[in-house]
Design a protein around this nucleic acid. Structure first.
Lengths: 199, 199
DNA sequence: AAATCAACCGAATGATCGGTCGGCTTTTTA
DNA sequence: TAAAAAGCCGACCGATCATTCGGTTGATTT
């Protein structure tokens, strides 16, 4: 592996473990065996290094999402919503280091002043959030989902699933153990009354 | 106000804005007008300062919770769950700086090695999480809530509400605008089928 | 073979970090 | 009112911070 890639990989680990301010270039140098100067040869400064990492994460997520849509076997809107939940949880468990990064505060802090950072974050979250919203809208057309405010409910769904993924990321609870209940609750939240069981 | 309190107050703001590593004692000194030595006269080090802040937050939340339970007009389990949602969102909007602190990664990181920190965080989250669980259990006894796994569903509810509160904390979206939908979704998620509308 | 170039090194930089210390001032105690 | 204690100050400390820079290597181009 090229030294540049080794730096990117180690820095991802370091930023996600210690945060942006807590990660030092000297430690990164130690981790990779690269001299201090080498890091700044490949990246113009610490912020630029972080933005390169974030861009990589964005590309992985957007590519995974495209892949997921191609493979998708989505019969109706409710299936699409459930698929979005699965997709999100699988993604989060497949790349825990990257999600640990995304689940910290400093990227959002940086986004307040850095438009490139903001752009990357928006791309990531729009991709994930829109996935829920499209499912709801589709479900409302095919009758599987009730007439609820699509964007708002997508946000509620998103924050629910993201919170569960966060349990996993922070190693507070195994998200997989909540999967069945999560899917069940999504169905009950959204299903049109015509499909609700009768008392 | 005593200098010690001024330091605590300013440090809360500083930690929540810049994170633990990003907050410097020199800046805290500038903010409060207190000399560097004064800060270390009142708190033995940076970590101790943070723990004092966290203890204060714990006490506010636990006291608010006791107050809420006393005032509570909770007819049945479903009411109790809805009350828990309202309580959480109100709390988060009343003390945004403190929730910004709680929503960062460094307290959990510190909790891995510092048992006092862990104790404070567990107190806070058990208080909030148990509130949901008790409501669900009660509702299952009085028939307003379906026979679902109480703890697991409490966690799902918790992460949903916490995610919405986080939107607010990070100033990405106004949580109040989602309140009605949130309550509606909670009802649909939990209500026993006997109470569900018929198609 | 000479020149060019990117990759890489590691010592050095000034700034800032968390934390200490001795002494001054004010309040409390005896 | 004398003594003790608590609050407070700011200069100072060694360590570490992100970043710079002059120089060496090895491959590619001319």
């Amino acid at each position: 592996m090229s030294k540049k890639n080794a730096i990117l990989l180690a820095a991802t680990e370091l930023f996600s473990q210690k945060g942006y301010e807590g990660a030092s270039m000297a430690e990164l140098s130690r981790m990779t065996g690269a001299a201090g100067g080498t890091i700044f040869h490949h990246f113009k400064n610490k912020e630029d290094l972080f933005l390169n990492i974030l861009r990589g994460i964005k590309e992985i997520i957007l590519n995974s999402f495209d892949q997921y849509l191609e493979d998708g076997n989505l019969k109706n809107g409710m299936d699409m919503v459930e698929g979005a939940v699965s997709f999100y949880l699988q993604l989060a468990s497949q790349m825990p280091t990257q999600f640990l990064l995304l689940h910290q505060h400093f990227p959002y802090k940086m986004a307040e002043t850095n438009p490139v950072c903001r752009d990357y974050l928006e791309s990531i979250y729009n991709c994930l959030l829109d996935n829920f919203e499209k499912g709801i809208v589709k479900g409302q057309k095919d009758g599987t989902i009730e007439n609820v405010p699509a964007r708002k409910c997508a946000m509620i769904l998103f924050s629910m699933v993201d919170g569960i993924a966060r349990f996993n990321t922070y190693q507070l609870y195994n998200a997989g153990a909540l999967y069945d209940e999560l899917i069940m609750m999504c169905r009950k939240m959204l299903r049109s009354d015509a499909y609700a069981p009768r008392g």
